[in-house]
């Protein structure tokens, strides 16, 4: 995406609000179970594995792998100027934690399945929207 940031239309729930605020300190957080230690995404009111209510946000490294992606050539939402990449990123802590996101800070042709990426945040009003870019802080 080029130019001004697109309108992000974040509509957080009480369970997910932390996700959209987490980047204020530069860290991505994912919900984790305090009983069985499994990661849970999207966040919910209880652990879907052991049903413990003791769930809460916990920082993750913010690194992962592009599982798949699309290059949008159509302006699906006014303000999202094509072309832009929408991707599913699987986090290193648990690849079943799959995050929808945009891949930025690279040419769209560079994006590929298996690409290593790291999180960055875009401020949008009161929110810090997690985006991903090619991993620069690790060797390939």
């Amino acid at each position: 995406m080029s130019g001004d940031n697109p309108p992000r239309f974040v509509l957080a729930s009480p369970e997910s609000e932390f996700y959209w605020r987490s980047g204020a300190d530069g860290r991505l957080r994912i919900q984790r179970c305090g009983e069985c230690s499994r990661w849970v995404h999207p966040p919910g009111p209880a652990c879907p594995f052991c049903h413990s209510r003791r769930v809460g946000p916990e920082p993750v490294a913010g690194t992962g792998t592009v599982a798949t992606y699309t290059i949008n050539r159509k302006e699906w939402i006014p303000g999202f100027t094509p072309p832009y990449v929408f991707a599913f990123v699987e986090l290193d802590e648990d690849p079943t934690v799959r995050i929808g996101t945009n891949i930025v800070d690279c040419e769209i042709e560079e994006v590929e399945i298996g690409m290593r990426v790291e999180v960055l945040f875009e401020e949008s009003g009161e929110w810090h929207v997690p985006l991903f870019r090619p991993a620069v802080t690790e060797g390939t």
Partner: peptide, 8 residues
């Protein structure tokens, strides 16, 4: 909510 903010 996890897709709309990304233009999906």
């Amino acid at each position: 909510q996890f897709m709309i903010p990304y233009g999906a």
